[in-house]
């Protein structure tokens, strides 16, 4: 996959509760370079999740176009883990594989610190563990495109930090195209090498920043400095 992925949404509306239509996105164009880790940042309701769903082909009810090779393998990590509660951890991961019987999942399970959990059911897991399983499921298919839709919300900072490290390691190894949607500017600054800032109603791109420094060299001071600068330049959009 060397061609960039392109997404153009001319108009996306939802049916409102009272029968009218609510416009979620208008005239939004995004391109994602292959092999890069892009973060989308913007306030709630600016159409980030909607855009990702359209990109992943989960929503066809919109005006616009998506340029994405038909055979793209998409690993999707949702806002909630979305595991099947009647399947064990390992069976949840195996479900999405094309050849579940021949795949060796041990390295992935080890990498995400899930060894010993394979036979547990999702209801027996903490949210942090369930999110790890959801991440393992997305990575297990060796995706061409990894979509992370606020994958670390409502986790304590230590757990979130560990999970971010895991994502980074996995991404570095496979060099997939990755898109992360988040509210958390620190998270974006730790993970992404490109940050797109979105403004709401209608969603539009406010800024498109590249971060040249490799992820492993970004110190806490660097992240803080960048954040302060962004808060100053785009108050109200970045917190």
């Amino acid at each position: 996959m060397s061609e960039p992925l392109e997404l153009h949404i001319a108009r996306k509306t939802y049916r409102g509760a009272e029968g009218g239509t609510v416009e979620a996105v208008r005239d939004l164009s995004l391109a994602f370079d292959s092999g890069r880790f892009t973060a989308l940042i913007g306030p709630s309701g600016c159409g980030k999740t909607t855009s990702l769903r359209i990109l992943a082909g989960l929503d066809h009810d919109f005006e616009g176009r998506v340029k994405l090779p038909a055979d793209t393998r998409i690993g999707f990590v949702f806002q909630e883990p979305r595991l099947l509660p009647w399947r064990t951890v390992i069976d949840n991961i195996r479900l999405v594989l094309d050849a579940p019987d021949t795949a060796d999942l041990t390295p992935l399970i080890d990498e995400l610190g899930l060894s010993g959990m394979e036979r547990k059911f999702p209801t027996e897991l903490s949210l942090g563990l369930a999110r790890r399983v959801a991440l393992a499921r997305a990575l297990a298919i060796a995706p061409d495109l990894l979509i992370l839709d606020e994958p670390f919300t409502s986790l304590d900072e230590t757990t979130a930090l560990r999970l971010r490290q895991m994502v980074l390691t996995a991404w570095k190894r496979r060099h997939t195209t990755a898109i992360l949607v988040t509210h958390n500017i620190r998270e974006a600054l730790q993970l992404a090498d490109r940050i797109i800032l979105l403004a709401p109603s209608p969603a539009r791109v406010v800024a498109d920043l590249g971060i040249g420094l490799p992820q492993e060299e970004r110190t806490e001071a660097f992240v803080e400095e960048m954040r302060t600068k962004m808060v100053r330049d785009w108050p109200g959009l970045v917190a």
Binding site: I74, F78, V96
Partner: peptide, 16 residues
């Protein structure tokens, strides 16, 4: 509907 969406995101076959 969330699980349905998950199944479609991972391109699961109709049978699965």
């Amino acid at each position: 509907p969330d699980l349905d969406q998950m199944a479609r995101a991972f391109r699961l076959s109709w049978r699965k």
